[in-house]
Amino acid sequence: MSETAAEPTAPLRARAEIDLGALRANVRALRARTPGAALMAVVKSDGYGHGAVPCARAALAAGATWLGTATPEEALALRAAGLPGPILCWLWVPGGPWRQAIEAGIDVSLSGMWALREAVAAARAAGRPARVQLKADTGLGRNGCQPGPDWAELVGEALRAEAEGLVRVTGLWSHFACADEPGHPSITAQLDRFREMLAYAEEQGVRPEVRHIANSPAALTLPETHFDLVRTGIALYGISPSPELGTPADFGLRPVMTLSASLALVKHVPGGHGVSYGHHYVTPGETTLGLVPVGYADGIPRHASGAGPVLVDGKWRTVAGRVAMDQFVVDLGGDEPAVGSEAVLFGPGDRGEPTAEDWAQACGTIAYEIVTRIGTRVPRVYVNGEEIG
């Protein structure tokens, strides 16, 4: 979970500028849309590529009350950085750091009996109860306990462990499969199943602190799913979870990351000049080429070859030929920006630059992947780190 100082003292090959002021504003916008629920800031995968620790701090400062991670290692790193309050982590494997998580006061998600057994054993070793949340598979078909006998067994054994002082059941939760697809029939089916599984657990005596199923798309568009807590991931970073639902601006959100690089070379070439591996692009006439010094080792999708948009000198350009490991080329059409000029791959769009969604469309993927895959060779530069006034 790398953390880079604010403005650098020397030009950078590339930079991912992270606007923490935009992130705080996004938290406030999300809270306004979910007034009856607490808000979890999901900072898994190093804050979706934005930097988990600084983004977590900014989110808590703006009113988020929970943090969420996938892996226990991510959660433990947040605690080591001094992040307070409840943290939920949900992706466990046998032999994981259960005791460390319990000692750090981290909520651990349980989807089956094996996980409950490991949590109980770790709680005994730690000499303190484990904070556990029981996850229900209401139809996503990934993690989570199946309804029926499996759920009954998990609930019953968790209550027995709670009676022994070994666990505290702090939450009941699930996850949508298609909340980003308006009107999908699975949404209602999952919500009905979740209510049924909640009712069973509560009838048996579970008294959770929080019940939650809403992810970013549900938080934005399905108020009936909010319950006690909403888990906001991609929306926190100012990216719409689906173009079908609306743009970031439609939800009062602003993209947090701007990815840019400094042109490493500008040169004249004749027509018929091959560009990059395989010569999949050949210049149609005499032109100028600009070398952008980032590639797939930095997280630029190779699928962006011949398609990825870049703003250079106020004009949209397109990746010419293949994206290589460390660099790609744009055809500047005869223009001659200075070496060192800024090439903006994506940002909020205020200056006419492409957005992460534009890159997603060019690559046949989703904007989540575009920002999350930006690698550690690209420094994160944090701006607007403190509230003004």
Rank of each mutant, 00 (worst) to 15 (best):
A189W: 03
L263D: 04
P241T: 11
L253W: 11
D180I: 02
I187H: 09
H279Y: 12
R211Y: 01
D192Q: 13
A189V: 01
M257I: 15
L253A: 09
E202K: 02
C178E: 13
L172A: 08
A264W: 02
H184F: 11
L198N: 07
L259C: 06
E209L: 04
A218H: 06
A264C: 11
G252Y: 04
T283A: 11
H280R: 15
D192C: 05
Y237P: 00
H175N: 14
A214S: 15
M257E: 10
W173N: 13
T225E: 08
L220T: 02
P208T: 04
E164M: 12
I239L: 15
P208C: 06
E209Q: 09
H212I: 00
F251Y: 12
G238N: 10
A235Y: 00
V292C: 11
G171F: 03
I213G: 10
T188H: 12
Y200C: 00
G183K: 06
P284S: 14
L229Y: 03
H268T: 14
F251L: 14
R193A: 15
E244T: 14
V275G: 04
G271W: 02
L172N: 09
H279A: 15
P208K: 06
H268W: 09
A163K: 11
S262W: 02
A261T: 06
E286D: 15
I213W: 00
L263Q: 07
L166P: 13
P255G: 08
V206Y: 03
P185W: 10
F176P: 04
S174E: 06
A177P: 05
P270F: 03
R207N: 01
P243E: 13
F194C: 06
L263S: 04
V230M: 03
P270V: 08
F227C: 12
V210M: 08
A201K: 01
I239F: 15
S216L: 04
G183I: 05
S242D: 10
P243G: 14
A189M: 07
L220Y: 02
Y281V: 01
T232K: 05
G165H: 06
L198S: 03
R195G: 09
T288Q: 08
P223C: 04
P241A: 09
P255F: 09
E202G: 01
L263F: 12
L172H: 06
V169W: 01
T170L: 08
Y281T: 00
L166C: 12
P241E: 09
F227W: 15
T288F: 11
G171V: 07
T232G: 02
G274V: 04
G165F: 05
T221F: 00
E196Y: 02
Y281H: 07
P248H: 12
S216D: 05
D250F: 13
E202T: 01
K267L: 14
E181D: 13
V167D: 10
E203C: 02
V167W: 01
A179M: 08
R254I: 14
G205C: 03
V167G: 06
D192Y: 00
G233Q: 04
I239G: 01
P270G: 14
D180R: 11
T258L: 13
T288S: 13
P284N: 04
S174Q: 09
S186F: 03
G205F: 00
P185S: 01
G171R: 10
L236I: 04
S242F: 14
A261R: 10
G171M: 09
L289D: 11
T232D: 13
G171H: 06
